[in-house]
Protein backbone atom coordinates (compact mmCIF):
# COMPACT_ATOMS: atom_id res chain seq x y z
CA UNK A 1 0.00 0.00 0.00
CA UNK A 2 1.37 3.39 -0.99
CA UNK A 3 1.23 5.99 1.74
CA UNK A 4 -0.05 8.64 -0.64
CA UNK A 5 -1.91 8.05 -3.87
CA UNK A 6 -3.14 10.98 -5.87
CA UNK A 7 -5.11 10.53 -9.08
CA UNK A 8 -6.08 13.33 -11.47
CA UNK A 9 -6.33 15.88 -8.71
CA UNK A 10 -7.31 19.40 -9.71
CA UNK A 11 -8.02 22.49 -7.69
CA UNK A 12 -9.36 25.82 -8.86
CA UNK A 13 -9.82 28.74 -6.49
CA UNK A 14 -12.55 31.24 -7.21
CA UNK A 15 -11.62 34.78 -6.33
CA UNK A 16 -12.88 38.31 -6.81
CA UNK A 17 -15.95 40.00 -5.34
CA UNK A 18 -18.35 37.83 -7.33
CA UNK A 19 -15.99 34.82 -7.25
CA UNK A 20 -15.87 34.77 -11.03
CA UNK A 21 -12.08 34.82 -11.37
CA UNK A 22 -10.77 31.27 -11.56
CA UNK A 23 -7.24 30.51 -10.41
CA UNK A 24 -6.10 27.03 -11.35
CA UNK A 25 -3.84 25.88 -8.51
CA UNK A 26 -3.51 22.21 -9.51
CA UNK A 27 -4.08 20.58 -12.89
CA UNK A 28 -4.69 16.86 -13.12
CA UNK A 29 -1.97 15.90 -10.64
CA UNK A 30 -1.22 12.20 -10.20
CA UNK A 31 1.56 10.83 -8.05
CA UNK A 32 2.36 8.25 -5.40
CA UNK A 33 4.55 8.24 -2.31
CA UNK A 34 5.94 4.90 -1.18
CA UNK A 35 6.27 3.84 2.46
CA UNK A 36 9.58 4.77 4.07
CA UNK A 37 10.79 7.20 1.43
CA UNK A 38 11.57 10.87 1.55
CA UNK A 39 9.57 12.43 -1.24
CA UNK A 40 10.50 15.95 -2.26
CA UNK A 41 7.92 18.16 -3.93
CA UNK A 42 9.72 20.95 -5.72
CA UNK A 43 8.41 24.00 -7.41
CA UNK A 44 8.69 27.77 -7.54
CA UNK A 45 6.49 29.94 -5.33
CA UNK A 46 2.85 29.59 -6.33
CA UNK A 47 3.40 26.25 -8.05
CA UNK A 48 0.70 24.57 -5.95
CA UNK A 49 2.90 22.61 -3.51
CA UNK A 50 1.16 23.82 -0.35
CA UNK A 51 -2.29 23.37 -1.92
CA UNK A 52 -1.45 19.74 -2.70
CA UNK A 53 -0.40 18.99 0.88
CA UNK A 54 -3.42 20.83 2.27
CA UNK A 55 -5.72 18.73 0.10
CA UNK A 56 -4.12 15.55 1.43
CA UNK A 57 -4.74 16.74 5.00
CA UNK A 58 -8.33 17.81 4.36
CA UNK A 59 -7.59 21.52 4.81
CA UNK A 60 -8.45 22.35 1.20
CA UNK A 61 -11.11 20.62 -0.85
CA UNK A 62 -10.16 19.47 -4.36
CA UNK A 63 -12.25 20.49 -7.36
CA UNK A 64 -11.88 17.03 -8.89
CA UNK A 65 -9.83 13.86 -8.56
CA UNK A 66 -9.14 11.48 -5.71
CA UNK A 67 -6.48 11.07 -3.07
CA UNK A 68 -5.76 8.52 -0.38
CA UNK A 69 -3.59 8.93 2.67
CA UNK A 70 -2.35 5.76 4.40
CA UNK A 71 -4.89 3.80 2.38
CA UNK A 72 -7.90 5.86 3.46
CA UNK A 73 -9.74 8.73 1.86
CA UNK A 74 -8.01 12.05 2.49
CA UNK A 75 -11.34 13.50 3.62
CA UNK A 76 -11.47 11.17 6.62
CA UNK A 77 -10.06 12.30 9.98
CA UNK A 78 -8.79 8.74 10.63
CA UNK A 79 -5.49 8.86 8.69
CA UNK A 80 -4.65 12.17 10.34
CA UNK A 81 -4.11 10.22 13.58
CA UNK A 82 -1.00 8.74 11.97
CA UNK A 83 0.13 11.94 10.29
CA UNK A 84 2.34 14.83 11.32
CA UNK A 85 2.25 18.23 9.67
CA UNK A 86 4.48 21.26 9.80
CA UNK A 87 2.68 24.03 7.90
CA UNK A 88 4.44 26.90 6.21
CA UNK A 89 4.26 30.16 8.23
CA UNK A 90 2.68 28.40 11.20
CA UNK A 91 1.44 30.51 14.09
CA UNK A 92 1.22 29.07 17.56
CA UNK A 93 -0.61 30.76 20.45
CA UNK A 94 2.13 33.15 21.55
CA UNK A 95 1.12 33.08 25.21
CA UNK A 96 2.26 29.46 25.47
CA UNK A 97 5.72 28.15 26.21
CA UNK A 98 7.34 25.66 23.83
CA UNK A 99 6.41 22.84 26.19
CA UNK A 100 2.79 23.99 26.59
CA UNK A 101 2.49 24.35 22.81
CA UNK A 102 3.50 20.73 22.33
CA UNK A 103 1.24 19.57 25.16
CA UNK A 104 -1.70 21.48 23.67
CA UNK A 105 -1.35 20.08 20.16
CA UNK A 106 -0.51 16.64 21.53
CA UNK A 107 -3.78 16.57 23.45
CA UNK A 108 -5.63 17.65 20.31
CA UNK A 109 -4.01 14.72 18.59
CA UNK A 110 -5.48 12.47 21.25
CA UNK A 111 -2.18 11.43 22.85
CA UNK A 112 -2.70 10.29 26.47
CA UNK A 113 -1.26 12.54 29.17
CA UNK A 114 1.68 10.48 30.50
CA UNK A 115 3.16 9.39 27.15
CA UNK A 116 2.65 12.94 25.91
CA UNK A 117 4.75 14.42 28.75
CA UNK A 118 7.56 11.96 28.01
CA UNK A 119 7.37 12.51 24.26
CA UNK A 120 7.31 16.32 24.67
CA UNK A 121 10.48 16.36 26.79
CA UNK A 122 12.24 13.97 24.44
CA UNK A 123 11.30 15.96 21.33
CA UNK A 124 12.32 19.29 22.87
CA UNK A 125 15.73 17.74 23.45
CA UNK A 126 15.84 16.33 19.90
CA UNK A 127 15.16 19.73 18.32
CA UNK A 128 17.58 21.48 20.66
CA UNK A 129 15.05 23.45 22.70
CA UNK A 130 15.36 21.68 26.04
CA UNK A 131 16.72 24.79 27.77
CA UNK A 132 13.96 26.91 26.23
CA UNK A 133 11.06 24.62 27.01
CA UNK A 134 9.44 26.96 29.56
CA UNK A 135 10.04 30.20 27.67
CA UNK A 136 7.04 31.82 25.96
CA UNK A 137 7.30 31.26 22.23
CA UNK A 138 6.62 34.93 21.49
CA UNK A 139 10.30 35.39 22.41
CA UNK A 140 11.45 32.79 19.88
CA UNK A 141 13.27 33.50 16.62
CA UNK A 142 11.95 32.16 13.31
CA UNK A 143 14.42 29.30 13.44
CA UNK A 144 13.37 28.34 16.95
CA UNK A 145 9.72 28.42 15.94
CA UNK A 146 10.53 26.06 13.07
CA UNK A 147 12.06 23.67 15.60
CA UNK A 148 8.91 23.89 17.74
CA UNK A 149 6.91 23.23 14.59
CA UNK A 150 8.98 20.17 13.73
CA UNK A 151 8.61 18.82 17.26
CA UNK A 152 4.85 19.43 17.04
CA UNK A 153 4.69 17.48 13.78
CA UNK A 154 6.56 14.57 15.36
CA UNK A 155 4.46 14.41 18.54
CA UNK A 156 2.21 11.57 17.47
CA UNK A 157 5.14 9.46 16.19
CA UNK A 158 3.53 9.68 12.73
CA UNK A 159 3.87 7.15 9.94
CA UNK A 160 3.92 9.97 7.43
CA UNK A 161 5.24 13.44 7.98
CA UNK A 162 4.33 16.45 5.83
CA UNK A 163 6.85 19.26 6.05
CA UNK A 164 6.21 22.53 4.25
CA UNK A 165 9.45 24.48 3.94
CA UNK A 166 10.86 23.03 7.18
CA UNK A 167 14.18 24.89 7.04
CA UNK A 168 12.70 28.27 6.20
CA UNK A 169 14.40 30.87 8.40
CA UNK A 170 16.69 28.33 10.02
CA UNK A 171 20.43 29.01 10.16
CA UNK A 172 22.87 26.64 8.39
CA UNK A 173 23.66 24.71 11.57
CA UNK A 174 19.97 24.32 12.32
CA UNK A 175 19.29 23.23 8.74
CA UNK A 176 21.86 20.49 9.03
CA UNK A 177 20.33 19.38 12.33
CA UNK A 178 16.89 19.20 10.73
CA UNK A 179 18.30 17.23 7.79
CA UNK A 180 19.92 14.82 10.24
CA UNK A 181 16.59 14.39 12.08
CA UNK A 182 14.88 13.61 8.78
CA UNK A 183 17.57 11.09 7.86
CA UNK A 184 17.14 9.41 11.24
CA UNK A 185 13.38 9.28 10.69
CA UNK A 186 13.96 7.58 7.35
CA UNK A 187 16.04 4.89 9.05
CA UNK A 188 13.04 4.37 11.37
CA UNK A 189 10.88 3.68 8.32
CA UNK A 190 8.94 6.95 8.40
CA UNK A 191 7.61 8.41 5.18
CA UNK A 192 8.40 12.07 4.68
CA UNK A 193 6.67 14.36 2.21
CA UNK A 194 8.87 17.40 1.88
CA UNK A 195 7.75 20.64 0.23
CA UNK A 196 10.65 22.89 -0.49
CA UNK A 197 12.32 25.26 -2.85
CA UNK A 198 15.70 24.59 -1.20
CA UNK A 199 16.86 22.36 -4.01
CA UNK A 200 20.25 21.40 -2.64
CA UNK A 201 18.63 20.13 0.54
CA UNK A 202 16.00 18.15 -1.28
CA UNK A 203 18.69 16.68 -3.51
CA UNK A 204 20.70 15.64 -0.47
CA UNK A 205 17.98 13.83 1.43
CA UNK A 206 15.17 12.89 -0.96
CA UNK A 207 14.74 9.46 -2.52
CA UNK A 208 12.30 10.67 -5.14
CA UNK A 209 11.09 14.06 -6.24
CA UNK A 210 8.31 15.61 -8.27
CA UNK A 211 8.67 18.98 -9.92
CA UNK A 212 5.54 21.05 -9.93
CA UNK A 213 5.00 24.25 -11.91
CA UNK A 214 1.79 26.20 -12.39
CA UNK A 215 -0.12 23.33 -10.84
CA UNK A 216 1.21 20.66 -13.19
CA UNK A 217 3.65 17.87 -12.44
CA UNK A 218 6.47 18.32 -14.92
CA UNK A 219 8.65 15.43 -13.85
CA UNK A 220 8.70 12.67 -11.25
CA UNK A 221 11.60 10.36 -10.54
CA UNK A 222 14.51 9.45 -8.33
CA UNK A 223 17.27 11.97 -7.85
CA UNK A 224 19.52 9.61 -9.84
CA UNK A 225 17.13 9.56 -12.78
CA UNK A 226 16.72 13.29 -12.80
CA UNK A 227 20.37 14.15 -12.35
CA UNK A 228 21.52 11.52 -14.86
CA UNK A 229 24.62 12.07 -16.95
CA UNK A 230 23.75 14.87 -19.31
CA UNK A 231 26.92 15.50 -21.32
CA UNK A 232 30.70 15.47 -21.65
CA UNK A 233 33.50 18.00 -21.57
CA UNK A 234 36.46 17.27 -23.84
CA UNK A 235 39.62 19.25 -23.14
CA UNK A 236 42.05 19.46 -26.10
CA UNK A 237 45.76 20.20 -26.07
CA UNK A 238 45.24 22.79 -28.85
CA UNK A 239 42.63 25.54 -29.26
CA UNK A 240 39.48 24.44 -31.04
CA UNK A 241 39.26 25.65 -34.64
CA UNK A 242 36.22 26.65 -36.66
CA UNK A 243 36.96 23.86 -39.14
CA UNK A 244 36.83 21.27 -36.32
CA UNK A 245 33.54 22.64 -35.00
CA UNK A 246 32.00 22.51 -38.50
CA UNK A 247 33.01 18.88 -38.70
CA UNK A 248 31.59 18.10 -35.24
CA UNK A 249 28.27 19.84 -35.99
CA UNK A 250 27.83 17.42 -38.88
CA UNK A 251 27.57 14.71 -36.18
CA UNK A 252 25.31 16.62 -33.73
CA UNK A 253 24.09 20.14 -33.18
CA UNK A 254 24.39 19.67 -29.35
CA UNK A 255 28.04 20.67 -29.34
CA UNK A 256 29.81 23.96 -28.65
CA UNK A 257 33.26 25.12 -27.75
CA UNK A 258 35.21 27.61 -25.67
CA UNK A 259 39.01 27.94 -25.97
CA UNK A 260 40.44 24.44 -25.77
CA UNK A 261 37.20 22.96 -24.45
CA UNK A 262 34.46 21.17 -26.37
CA UNK A 263 31.12 20.61 -24.62
CA UNK A 264 28.80 17.87 -25.77
CA UNK A 265 25.27 18.45 -24.41
CA UNK A 266 24.19 14.80 -24.50
CA UNK A 267 24.94 11.63 -22.62
CA UNK A 268 24.61 9.50 -25.78
CA UNK A 269 27.68 7.19 -25.93
CA UNK A 270 27.52 6.62 -29.70
CA UNK A 271 27.56 10.34 -30.38
CA UNK A 272 30.46 10.76 -27.96
CA UNK A 273 32.50 8.14 -29.83
CA UNK A 274 31.66 9.71 -33.17
CA UNK A 275 32.79 13.12 -31.85
CA UNK A 276 36.03 11.67 -30.48
CA UNK A 277 36.70 10.00 -33.85
CA UNK A 278 36.22 13.32 -35.70
CA UNK A 279 38.58 15.11 -33.26
CA UNK A 280 41.30 12.52 -33.91
CA UNK A 281 40.65 12.55 -37.68
CA UNK A 282 41.32 16.31 -37.66
CA UNK A 283 44.66 15.69 -35.87
CA UNK A 284 43.74 17.15 -32.45
CA UNK A 285 45.00 15.65 -29.16
CA UNK A 286 42.72 14.98 -26.24
CA UNK A 287 43.93 16.24 -22.87
CA UNK A 288 40.96 14.99 -20.78
CA UNK A 289 37.41 13.71 -21.00
CA UNK A 290 34.93 14.41 -18.18
CA UNK A 291 31.34 13.20 -17.95
CA UNK A 292 29.04 16.06 -16.91
CA UNK A 293 26.32 15.35 -14.37
CA UNK A 294 23.66 18.00 -13.91
CA UNK A 295 22.66 19.16 -10.46
CA UNK A 296 19.02 18.99 -9.49
CA UNK A 297 19.05 22.78 -9.41
CA UNK A 298 20.27 22.98 -13.03
CA UNK A 299 17.61 20.57 -14.17
CA UNK A 300 14.91 22.34 -12.16
CA UNK A 301 15.75 25.78 -13.54
CA UNK A 302 15.96 24.43 -17.09
CA UNK A 303 12.62 22.70 -16.72
CA UNK A 304 10.84 25.68 -15.23
CA UNK A 305 12.34 28.18 -17.68
CA UNK A 306 11.72 26.21 -20.77
CA UNK A 307 8.35 24.91 -19.64
CA UNK A 308 9.43 21.46 -20.67
CA UNK A 309 7.22 18.44 -20.24
CA UNK A 310 8.62 14.96 -19.69
Amino acid sequence: MNHVEIANLSKAYLSGIFRRKRIQALVDVSLTVHPGEIFGLLGPNGAGKTTLVKILLGIVHPTSGTATLLGQSHTSAQPRKRTGYLPENHRYPNFLSARDTLLHFGRLHGIPKDPLFQRTDSLLETVGLKDWSNVKIKKFSKGMLQRVGLAQALLSDPEILFLDEPTDGVDPVGRKEIRDILKTLRTQGKTIFLNSHMLSEVEEISDRVAILNKGEVLRTGTIKEITAQTGHEIELQEPVTEDLMRSLREVTSDVHSSGTKIVLETGDKQLLNAILDRIREKGFHIESLVARKSKLEDYFIKLIKEGETP
Binding site: L57, G58, I59, A77, Q78, Y85, P87, H90, F105, Q152
Partner: peptide
Amino acid sequence: LEKGTVELYLSKPLS
Protein backbone atom coordinates in the same frame (compact mmCIF):
# COMPACT_ATOMS: atom_id res chain seq x y z
CA LEU B 1 -9.08 30.83 11.67
CA GLU B 2 -5.93 32.91 11.16
CA LYS B 3 -3.57 31.69 8.47
CA GLY B 4 -0.90 29.52 10.02
CA THR B 5 -3.11 28.57 12.97
CA VAL B 6 -6.15 27.06 11.27
CA GLU B 7 -3.94 24.55 9.41
CA LEU B 8 -2.63 23.26 12.73
CA TYR B 9 -6.14 22.61 14.02
CA LEU B 10 -7.52 21.17 10.79
CA SER B 11 -4.61 18.75 10.42
CA LYS B 12 -5.48 17.13 13.73
CA PRO B 13 -7.83 14.13 13.88
CA LEU B 14 -10.87 16.22 14.78
CA SER B 15 -13.83 16.98 12.57
